[in-house]
């Protein structure tokens, strides 16, 4: 699973730093957490500003979950997406 986080000025200012910390912390917790699929890999990518937030107050912080844009993202929102995927039973 790939989470890409915008780290431009506005996203950083309004929470992307907290999202990065939350995910790195979760990544560590998942190593000992029960029910995580053996083949699950979390990739965290940091993106430069691509300008999507300019002139729009309802974008930052912007995160992409496997390519899907999640505007006004929060740590809990993204962590839940990650865990749902990591614990998915096929």
């Amino acid at each position: 699973m790939k989470i890409a986080i915008c780290t431009g000025s506005k996203c950083t200012f309004y929470g992307s730093s907290h999202i990065i910390e939350s995910l790195e912390d979760l990544q560590e917790s998942m190593q000992t957490m029960e029910g995580i699929r053996d083949d699950f890999v979390l990739e965290i990518e940091l993106l430069p500003c691509e300008g999507h937030c300019k002139g729009d107050e309802k974008v930052a912080p912007l995160v992409y979950v496997d390519g899907e844009a999640v505007p006004m993202a929060t740590g809990p929102m993204i962590m839940e997406r990650v865990l749902n995927e990591a614990m998915r039973i096929d």
């Binding site: 780290t7 431009g8 000025s9 506005k10 200012f13 430069p48 500003c49």
Partner: peptide
């Protein structure tokens, strides 16, 4: 200072 960057839309990493 970051408030100034945001107000002016200045991107340090660029």
């Amino acid at each position: 200072l970051m408030g100034m960057f945001v107000a002016r839309e200045v991107e340090p990493s660029a």
